[in-house]
C-alpha cells in the first residue's frame, strides 16, 4: 500500500477540569488513539457520546490542540505547523458539522458562504462565480438559491450547503462529524447518497464520525470503535459488523435495532449493565472491564493493546472472540 493520507499516532487529549467540590482533575477525552486513512478510503470512527470520537476529529483538524501525539497529513505533521502554515494547510482537509443551522453563519447568503473559502485561499475573483455555480450543481441545489440565507432552507438543503462550503477548495480529506444525525430519516438517506456520489466523483477520503452504526454501514470501508477515549476494535467494516471480537462492539451492535420485526424478535440483545464510567476517573487496565461480562483480574491490572488478527481486524481485549448469538449476518437484500 502507498503511504497513508492521514496517520494519527498516540493522540492524547486531556482537559483540565474542576469537580463540583472544586478539586482540580483531568478529563481523559482521548487516550492514545492511532488511526490510518488511505487516499480514497472512508474510515468511520464510531462510539457513543463521551467516547472521544468528536474530540479526536477536532484534534486532527486542530480546532482543539491535542495534549500529545502526532497527526501526519501527506507526511506533514500538522501539530508542528504554526498558525499561518496550518491556516494554509486547511485547504486540504475540511469538515462538515452535525448541525448546519449552527455551523453556517446566519447572516451570510449561500453566495457568500461558498465564496468565502475561495477568496480566503486565493482564487482569482473572476473565477469565483463559476466555481460557486459548479458547487451548487455538485450538491444538487438550484442556482436560484444563491441569494438565500441559511434559515430559508430545509435541514437537508442546509446540510448540502454545508457540504458545498467544505468542498469549495477541493480538499482531499473531509472530516464528517455526525453529518446526518440532526436530520429526518428520509433526508438522511439523501445526504448519505450524496456523500457516496461525491466520494466517487471527486475521489475524496472521509473520516466519518458517527454514532449511528446503521448509517456507518452504508458508507464505511473501515471502522474504528471507540470506548472511553480508546479504540477497542478496528478493521474492515464488513468484518467488524459480521464478526465483532470485542465485547463492547458486540454489545453496541446488538443494541442497534433492525427495522424488521421478524429479525428483532429472534435477536439476542446484550443489554449493558451500569453507566459509562466518568472520563475524569477511568477504570484501570481495560476501560470497558466495569461493564464487561468477560472481565477478570487481568483486565483490571493490564491494559489490552490493539492486536492484529490474521484477517486484518485489530482488537484491544484480553479475551477476544466471536459471540455467535449477537453477530449480525452480512446479508444482501
Amino acid at each position: 500500500m502507498n503511504a497513508p493520507l492521514l496517520q494519527v499516532t498516540d493522540l492524547v487529549k486531556e482537559f483540565k477540569v474542576r469537580s463540583e467540590s472544586g478539586k482540580p482533575g483531568v478529563l481523559h477525552a482521548v487516550s492514545g488513539v492511532n488511526l490510518t486513512l488511505h487516499a480514497g478510503e472512508t474510515l468511520a470512527l464510531v462510539g457513543e457520546s463521551g467516547c472521544g470520537k468528536s474530540t479526536t476529529g477536532r484534534c486532527i483538524l486542530r480546532l482543539t490542540e491535542p495534549t500529545s501525539g502526532t497527526v501526519e497529513f501527506n507526511g506533514t505533521n500538522l501539530l508542528s505547523l504554526d498558525h499561518e502554515a496550518m491556516r494554509r494547510m486547511r485547504r486540504n482537509l475540511q469538515v462538515v458539522f452535525q448541525d448546519p443551522q449552527a455551523s453556517l453563519h446566519p447572516r451570510m447568503t449561500v453566495r457568500r458562504l461558498l465564496g468565502e473559502p475561495l477568496e480566503v485561499h486565493g482564487m482569482p475573483k473572476a473565477e469565483i462565480p463559476a466555481r460557486i455555480e459548479e458547487l451548487l450543481r455538485l450538491v444538487h441545489l438550484r442556482p436560484e438559491f444563491l441569494d438565500r440565507y441559511p434559515h430559508e432552507f430545509s435541514g437537508g438543503q442546509r446540510q448540502r450547503v454545508g457540504i458545498a462550503r467544505a468542498l469549495a477548495i477541493s480538499p482531499a480529506l473531509l472530516v464528517l462529524d455526525e453529518p446526518v444525525s440532526a436530520l429526518d430519516v428520509s433526508i438522511q438517506s439523501e445526504i448519505v447518497r450524496l456523500l457516496i456520489e461525491l466520494r466517487e466523483r471527486l475521489g475524496l477520503s472521509y473520516l466519518f464520525i458517527a454514532h449511528d452504526l446503521a448509517v456507518v454501514r452504508q458508507l464505511a470501508d473501515r471502522v474504528a470503535v471507540m470506548y472511553l477515549g480508546r479504540i477497542v476494535e478496528t478493521g474492515p467494516a464488513d468484518l467488524v459488523y459480521s464478526n465483532p471480537q470485542h465485547p463492547y462492539t458486540q454489545a453496541l451492535l446488538s443494541a442497534v435495532p433492525i427495522p424488521d420485526p421478524t429479525i428483532e424478535l429472534a435477536r439476542r440483545r446484550i443489554v449493558l449493565q451500569g453507566d459509562l464510567p466518568s472520563p475524569t476517573d477511568p477504570p484501570s487496565g481495560c476501560r470497558f472491564r466495569t461493564r464487561c461480562w468477560r472481565a477478570d483480574a487481568r483486565c483490571a491490572s493490564e491494559q489490552p493493546l490493539l492486536t492484529a488478527m490474521a484477517n486484518g481486524q485489530e482488537v484491544a481485549c484480553h479475551y477476544p472472540g466471536a459471540d455467535t448469538a449477537v453477530s449480525v449476518a452480512s446479508s444482501k437484500p
Binding site: L61, L63, R90, S103, P106, E116, P117, V120, R165, I169
Partner: peptide, 26 residues
Amino acid sequence: QREYVESAEAIGVKRFAILRRYVLPM
C-alpha cells in the same frame, strides 16, 4: 464558541476576519 465561528476557523479564515465578520456582528 458558536459552531459557525469554528467552521470559519476550519475553512482557514484569518483571525481578524473571523472577529470582524463572524463574531462582532452577532
